[in-house]
Design a protein around this nucleic acid. Structure first.
Lengths: 333, 333
DNA sequence: ATGAAAGCGCTAACAA
DNA sequence: TTGTTAGCGCTTTCAT
């Protein structure tokens, strides 16, 4: 079923049908009605490839993220998809698995009109940014969310990473911790360095020494992480507090503590970034920092659509900060 | 940058360039090399809309799921995306939020060549299936995963819902429970009725009475669920075991127990479906049934690609069952 | 208010 | 082995 056939059945030209379906003012109300009725009857749908080719628009956006098995990106996709659905857009999803090579090949695939815009949360491995500069240079609307590249002048939607890092560390200090370990993501990641700066400043403000042996960079290999954490917790001078910069590291810590029969929070207090919805499932003694992932997704998508709709507008300066919240759990249970 | 321009720069015809890029045997190795080099130099990418229109193929599949904020669908998408990426396909994602109307409008959007195939896990609300019959009738390859419609003859990838329902219930009985509540999804959902049948048969086999007051249908509204669970746990004849047919209901239960100062597993034992990766975050006293979501996604996508690649093959009978596993937690801690 | 026709960028049948 | 050309289905300009 295509335009031509539909036009033939109605005994009018394809251009009239096309205009009628797109509610053009050139077409009489009567014809429009007739066309719409027939289209519905025959279950006609425009061919997105033909229309996309002609109009040079895809009505599609791409979301590039490191993982989806993650308390952050799940809700974020939810927010993105709901905005896209409301706007009549389609959402392509691509996972990098924290691999910059994949990120590059994915952005390469999106260069020739497949999408009208891109939302990206960069991989932890991303150092070189020429593939992203290329996207920008081709004038494909681009918005960063959560994991951003500060040096690239595109809109960014982030949480208050420095502040929450500060608050989290402060919370542990208030709870009596003196030797607080920070489980970091690779330094290249903006969120990691900001969270760490919050951590460092909180220590300083409380006159606690910074011990570089307590700042540990982990990655997404759980068994390697657990081995590292195991060593950390077996030290004679074991930390009494742990600040995990992502949920996975808290899970890893939790498992090692179980294995070593260390009690959270008696032996060691733990705080981590996590998502509100399942926070209650975390060991109740872990305080969590809840990121408004759904809202971030919605916000990032909204900005992207603004860019898509009115090109030329200067969005370079937009940098939306959405506040996360500390969710204290009953720490004495 | 398009074919024509590229051809002009090379001083050969567009068809030669097109064939060269697609590694046609009609083209000499020398020309191919020259073309590929120039294409790379000029960063040429085929226009997917033009090529899709001409070839009547989109190189894209759609995944329709109820939610993404979910321990099951996250890993499932991961599995799907990895297979798709390997095959050079793109993945569109659509969320129904358990709303059949949305499911219908989404399948409607996919009728005109936007995708080469569809993977779907139906919404809990889906009763009418004419929109899915329409997809099948238009010969768009379709595969169900996890939440299937038994009556529609298309390939299905499921877990052993009956068996795991049986095992889960048995586990609670073994643990000393005598009054076991079942927190069900709406009956329309195949997975729910199968899990319930397992539950019922386990009770029978252990000579325990079936109490219909203990079979409670919940939905995706957490506050309504919690209210229902609150009532359940306040009954004089409180259940001593709870079998939650999805993780969300276990979370809801957990929260109500905390509120009512009920101890899991002392006062009430809980078992639920969940995902291995975060199982350790669940209250350690909850035994979980781990579904191999990633594998299911991979399997479903593989079947879909088989259908896409060799049309006409009869896949109607394929019904892949992937076993879930019981993950007992230290229930005495 | 309606229609004819060009053309979006690509592929493939056919010609050379 | 390479080139010419028609046409995928749609939108849009320009006529009528």
């Amino acid at each position: 079923m295509n335009l031509k056939e539909l036009a033939r059945k109605l005994n009018i030209s394809t251009s009239t049908v096309s205009k009628a379906l797109r509610d053009s003012h050139e077409i009489s109300e009567a014809t429009k009605k007739r066309v719409r009725a027939k289209a519905k009857e025959l279950n006609y749908q425009v061919n997105p490839f033909a229309s996309g080719l002609r109009k040079q628009k895809s009505k599609t956006i791409a979301v590039i993220i490191p993982e989806v098995v993650n308390e952050f990106f799940g809700p974020a996709i939810n927010g993105i998809e709901s905005v896209a659905q409301a706007k009549g857009y389609h959402v392509l999803i691509y996972l990098t698995h924290e691999d910059m090579k994949k990120e590059i090949s994915i952005t390469g695939l999106l260069q020739n009109g497949r999408v009208d815009g891109i939302l990206i949360s960069v991989s932890a491995q991303t150092r070189n940014i020429s593939h992203l500069e290329e996207v920008k240079q081709k004038e494909i609307p681009l918005v960063f969310f959560d994991r951003v590249i500060d040096s690239l002048p595109v809109p960014k939607v982030i949480t208050d990473d420095y502040e929450s890092g500060f608050k989290a560390t402060n919370h542990l200090i208030q709870g009596g911790c003196r030797r607080i370990a920070f489980l970091a993501l690779p330094r290249t990641l903006s969120i990691s360095s900001k969270r760490m700066n919050g951590y460092l400043d909180a220590l300083k403000k409380n006159n606690l020494p910074v011990d570089s042996n307590l700042i540990i960079t982990l990655n997404h290999d759980s068994s390697a992480n657990k081995e590292t954490i195991r060593k950390l917790l077996k030290r004679k001078n074991r930390p009494d507090g742990i600040f995990a910069s992502i949920e996975l590291f808290a899970i890893n810590t939790y498992e090692v503590c179980e294995e070593l029969k260390l009690n959270i929070p008696i032996d060691v207090k733990v705080i981590c970034f996590s998502n509100l919805k399942t926070a209650s499932l975390l060991n109740p003694s872990m305080t969590t920092i809840s990121q408004p992932a759904y809202e971030m997704g919605k916000e990032a998508a909204s900005i992207l659509f603004k860019m898509i709709e009115k090109k030329g507008h200067n969005f370079l300066l937009e940098r939306t900060v959405i506040n996360s919240t500390l969710v204290p759990r009953n720490s004495t249970k």
